[in-house]
Computed example of a mutant assay.
Amino acid sequence: MPVIRTDELTKRFPGVTALDRLTVDIDAGVVGLVGANGAGKSTLIKILLGIAPATSGRASVLGSDVVTNGPDIRAQVGYMPEHDCLPGDVSATEFVVHMARMSGLPADAARERTADTLRHVGLYEERYRPIGGYSTGMKQRVKLAQALVHDPTIVMLDEPTNGLDPVGRDEMLALIRRVHTDFGISVLVTSHLLGELERISDHVVVIDGGQLLRSSSTTDFTRNSQALVVEVTDRSDDVVAALAEAGLTADRDGRHILVTLTGDADYDVIRSAVARLGVGLIRLEQRRHHIVEVFGEERTDVGAA
């Protein structure tokens, strides 16, 4: 049974439709919810948590209807909001213990679970410092900790890498993946960056303008395109010209060269052309789809239907 299910789910605000007859099943595991800002991701999570009512349609979490069983759902779900909502004058320990008690844990269990969870997210040594003095990355870890402290069945993480530098993003993504692999907790994580989610997700759901564009395994979603990415040390324009002389279609794409793939023999042709020019070959591999291309493909299909 899917851990999350929506059926014709619609949410309208004055002048705006945030969700438009969204029907999707989400299974256990790590599932990425992808869409541009304003696509309806946060609205969907709030409806699933019973924080906001839907205009029409139905939704369930862990088999329970979100309208009639909101408290039961929230007892089994952890939620990490996108916005900065942490009190600056208390420590991470105080805050996470408070959230654990709010979830129904006894005092002793709440303190024990808090220590374990802060250790898991890498804040154990800093657990008594006021949150107001934390970096953005540390604050994001506090939000993740409070979502995990009551040992939920599923966590919903809304843009958890917002505001983080590349190293912080990598560390947060690794933590999120471990939530499932180490503890068996299912994860629904939102982002507007497909590249992040394809690294950690088993399945990807794409929405845009509140509508479902695609729901498929990560492997299918990021399938290889019929183009090769060629990266060389220098003289990219000369390489493009040499490939054209060899009968291949090649174009510059920033510092990369994109070559239309016609067969396996193209690899040897490219390597030979690069070798003749005496430049270094850094990378030669099939290109993967990007989020904007998937949006374009799906919109074309919808428009043709």
Rank of each mutant, 00 (worst) to 15 (best):
D89N: 15
A75P: 00
D251N: 14
T68P: 01
V189N: 10
T218K: 10
S91M: 04
Y128P: 00
L228I: 13
L277F: 03
R111H: 12
D266H: 04
A242D: 03
D237R: 02
S56Q: 06
R169T: 10
A174K: 12
N37G: 15
R119T: 11
S60Y: 06
S236T: 07
H290A: 11
D25P: 02
D234R: 13
A54M: 08
V155G: 02
F95I: 10
L175R: 04
D220G: 15
G122M: 05
A273L: 00
S225M: 15
M1Q: 01
D253V: 15
L44Q: 13
V66G: 10
A92T: 02
S64M: 15
A28Y: 08
T260K: 07
L193V: 12
F95Y: 13
E112C: 09
H290W: 03
S60F: 02
E94A: 09
L243S: 02
L164Q: 04
G63N: 14
T10R: 01
T153S: 07
I131M: 03
L243N: 01
G63E: 09
K41S: 03
L248F: 06
P2N: 03
V30L: 08
R169I: 13
K41E: 11
G280R: 06
A36E: 13
A110R: 02
G104W: 10
A305Q: 11
N37F: 07
V302M: 05
Y134R: 07
G163Q: 06
E126K: 02
T260H: 03
K139V: 14
A54E: 04
R283C: 03
V30A: 13
V16T: 15
R129K: 15
H150R: 07
V77L: 11
V67T: 14
F221K: 03
T222F: 09
G132F: 10
A28W: 09
P160Y: 10
T68M: 07
V167I: 12
G70W: 05
V66R: 13
G29A: 07
L277Q: 01
N37C: 10
G35K: 14
V269D: 01
F183M: 12
V90L: 09
V90H: 05
E285V: 10
T222L: 04
R113P: 00
L48M: 12
A18S: 15
I47G: 06
V30G: 06
A59M: 12
G40A: 00
H83I: 04
A107M: 10
K46V: 08
V187Q: 14
P81H: 04
G15Y: 14
A174E: 15
R276M: 05
S236K: 14
R169W: 02
V61C: 02
D170V: 01
G40D: 08
N224E: 14
G163D: 07
